[in-house]
Design a protein around this nucleic acid. Structure first.
Lengths: 310, 310
DNA sequence: CATTTGTTCTGTCCTGGACAAATAGATTGA
DNA sequence: TCAATCTATTTGTCCAGGACAGAACAAATG
């Protein structure tokens, strides 16, 4: 009904596959002349696969900060060149080895080996160092390898599954329902990346917090209810680069307003790190793990007496 | 910029919070007179919170199979009555106890207790019975409790997190990278419910399959690549009730066409169970766990010689 | 009672236009 | 030379209102 599944996709299929909204796809078509989909018998747009691939690549580069008008009419070679160029110089941690090994396991399609590798690292370094010195740079490296086409999404998915499994297991073992602060962790409905949240939960749990994870994509309304129900001290949200930046602050403010004033709001993730504007009071933007730990320490010292009393 | 965060939401916020697309929201407004958003200073729709709540409720009932025209102009009381009425009569398994206990733990906001409860059940019954006789009815019960407002989404999230954690741990322990068939498991980009997939992975792993999970929301293109890269024998997809039904078959056919003919396509989940149409050959619709196990057995016997040879 | 045939319902798509926020570029002042 | 302010362009999202196919339903027929 929708698409001639042969070699062309409907506009909604392209939206799903590329993450570019229908409105944007139509606007680009009139503004830049690309994409230039065929029309099916109903007069509806039908995007040939090569155009979809190109759109995917453009989206990649835009997530890395480039603007559409520069990209849309570039030749394919130039696009690829840009993708390569957009790689930031390696911050080559001392753990470059793990990085190489991980990429290798991914390319060899060896999920079990990957898991084992990560588990060994976790045991060697302890949670905090593992998260800080291994996972964070690793996430970066994987993201970049993907952005320039060295890794396909499914390999990233495999990586993400492995890390998730490992972290969940760890958190479950550390979880102490009497810990403070009680941190409610989740993402808003448009954000599906929950890895950062898990990393955070692992570290905070280790430091004695009690983390309640709601998974990803919780509507604001439900976050508010959950915060009350769980008597949360803190609501922690994560925003990835893929989250439309302009929506971060309004969303945070909306949440802030609907939450009890006692509850703190923490926002982290790569999407936040790029924000300059300082938001209204009572919302903390946490650009990295260090800041987050500071925030938690100061919460703990501020509430020490209560905690002892309660 | 978008919303007066005070008491009214922009159309895109409502789309996120309710899952109803912008087009649908606008169409309902002109067709049925509801919702009837205010307009902000820019002339853009601003939905008051009560209307958003009502939309949420209507969406619930529609996911349960009702039609919008019947719901949209009903009084609030009638809507709630409908929600209650839509509960199916309890299939009261012999495990009604676990069900009650689970709901209790959820209402008491006790994630750790919940996890413990589930773990104990898993150990008592073994994986397959646990999934079949406990988790499946439990998912049902939770879904219904949510649909009629007895449970809020965040409680459902907590449940889902607990089950996920448990299953992932189990699967990791069972995983045997030499197992056959090699089953690639994921969902399409619009589908974020991966619980059914995990349950399946647990049972299949137990029976000797090797399950490669890509998590949720993988674009078709990447599924195809992943299937090649992992030399998958089967690609298993899951569709929940929330997935727009009309899109299931086209999507499956598209995937089928782009995949190597040797690879089987299995589709399961509540969304599939409601499909009557038999799809093209080489796509298996698996309405329940039993059918899936049958499918796997027949795969295994069909490939026995190869398996021994390879 | 089962099947077929018309009707209504409903989601998605279309065009083309508007506008504010974000960004880049130019101009000015220190 | 650098920083800061202002202007112009870019860009995503919104709007209205119209079209249509496929699903759901109801009615009529065997």
């Amino acid at each position: 009904m929708n698409q001639p599944p042969n070699s062309a996709l409907s506009i909604s299929a392209v939206e799903r596959e590329t993450g570019l909204s229908k409105d944007v796809l139509r606007k680009w078509e009139t503004r830049y002349g690309f994409p230039s989909p065929l029309r099916d018998s109903l007069g509806e747009r039908a995007y040939p696969l090569p155009q979809v691939d190109r759109l995917r690549l453009i989206k990649r580069l835009m997530d890395a900060g480039m603007r559409p008008s520069r990209l849309v009419n570039e030749s394919d070679e130039n696009l690829n060149a840009l993708a390569l160029a957009s790689q930031s110089p390696q911050i080559s941690s001392k753990d470059g080895d793990v990085e190489k090994l991980t990429l290798e396991k991914l390319r060899q399609q060896d999920p079990s080996g990957l898991r084992q590798l990560l588990y060994r690292e976790l045991m060697r370094q302890g949670i905090q160092c593992f998260v800080q010195d291994t996972l964070v740079p690793l996430n970066h490296a994987i993201g970049e390898a993907w952005a320039c086409g060295e890794l396909s999404i499914h390999e990233e998915h495999v990586y993400s599954e492995a890390v998730q499994g490992l972290l969940r297991e760890t958190i479950a073992k550390l979880s102490d329902s009497q810990g403070r602060p009680r941190v409610l962790m989740t993402t808003l409905p448009e954000e599906q990346h929950g890895l950062g949240l898990l990393m955070l939960a692992a570290v905070l749990s280790l430091r004695g917090a009690y983390c309640i994870s709601l998974g990803t994509q919780t509507p604001v309304q439900d976050i508010v209810e959950a915060a009350e129900a769980h008597r949360a001290d803190v609501v922690a949200l994560s925003f990835s680069n893929a989250y439309p930046q302009r929506r971060i602050l309004p969303a945070l403010e909306e949440l802030r307003q609907r939450l009890d004033g006692e509850v703190e709001v923490w926002a982290g993730g790569a999407g936040c790190a790029r924000l300059h504007t300082v938001p209204v009071n009572n919302i903390q933007l946490l650009a990295d793990l260090e800041q987050t730990l500071t925030a938690m320490s100061s919460w703990q010292s501020a509430h020490q007496t209560e905690a002892l009393a309660g």
